[in-house]
Design a protein around this nucleic acid. Structure first.
Lengths: 166, 166
DNA sequence: TGCATTTAGTGCGATATCGCACTATATAGT
DNA sequence: ACTATATAGTGCGATATCGCACTAAATGCA
């Protein structure tokens, strides 16, 4: 399995014009392929550790509200995670149903709401971090975190480019 | 938006034990966050270019059958992309309905099938590459592809680790 | 050889994702 | 001030994702 994917990534068949994305294009296709698989794997891992019914988008929103700023609008959150508004609406509904957030009218915009963490939401997020820590620590001890840290700016650059050119 | 995410990634709040994943753990959380967003952005971009109803998983399977090997089993494909069997079953059903693949009994295993590209499937995949090329080329001209190529082995390493330790 | 256990693919149903269209509100231009 | 246009959030419905359970076939062990 992993060998087949590695073969796909390493293969350099060249030759057929227009059929095989090689050179720079091939690199980028491989990159996005890796991203897709990494996303799949990490989401599966994280959701296995979170309580039943709690998804990665749930946790990510809670984490974002804590790390970045509480009281953000659904629109801002949707943009932060690059998901459609309706997807974010659905995610927030799940969080609100669990009492982890509260949605209140946005005093600066009559069309809008602000998403606020509840005390339960804060506790929940901290507990989630604890639940995820062992696995993440295991990854950190198996793979050189310095290299990941060094790669982050590049990933952010790609993200920014895609965001600004969509 | 991008600034908020950048702030999240760069922030190093330190201090509260057990509440904030910092140091190596924080780096990994940031990494997986980037991966999730990149996946979202790339999927949206690619699916916007593909014909209506054709998803990234559809294209990815076709591409995989061409680049790696035709005639693979549903199980092998599900493993390659790290998706559940039932998800792959659904994806393949969509491809077969469009006449892009044919599923035939696997002569080596009575329980199994093999997924074969049709001529239409090959043509379709080549056309899809063409449809995606302009955007990917634009990305390649904006961001140093060498750096992406240099990062690929690291991404593959993370993928391999997650795959082997799930 | 017989049988317990495992596995491949899928039917089925629940939930997540997300586009379309809409209402209410904000913004921009005259 | 008025109005055309844009925007925030969501109802609704279609499709994708995926777990559970199952049947049929394969594998491993005594």
């Amino acid at each position: 399995m992993a060998d087949e994917q590695a073969e796909e990534i390493r293969s350099d068949r060249g030759g057929e014009p227009g059929c095989e994305p090689d050179g720079p294009l091939g690199v980028w296709f491989a990159f996005f392929n890796e991203v897709g698989i990494l996303h799949q794997l990490s989401r599966t891992l994280f959701e296995a550790r979170l309580p039943d019914g709690v998804t990665l988008p749930h946790f990510s929103v809670l984490n974002h509200l804590i790390r970045v700023r509480d009281g953000q609008t659904p629109r801002a959150l949707a943009e932060a995670f690059q998901v459609p508004k309706t997807s974010m609406t659905h995610t927030l509904a799940g969080l609100e149903a669990r009492g982890l957030i509260a949605m209140r009218a946005n005093p600066e915009d009559g069309r809008s709401k602000q998403v606020w963490l509840t005390e339960e939401g804060r506790r929940f997020r901290n507990e989630a971090i604890r639940l995820l820590s062992d696995d993440v620590a295991a990854i950190a001890s198996a793979i050189d975190t310095e290299r990941i840290a060094a790669a982050l700016p590049l990933l952010a650059e790609v993200r920014r480019y895609l965001d600004e050119n969509r």
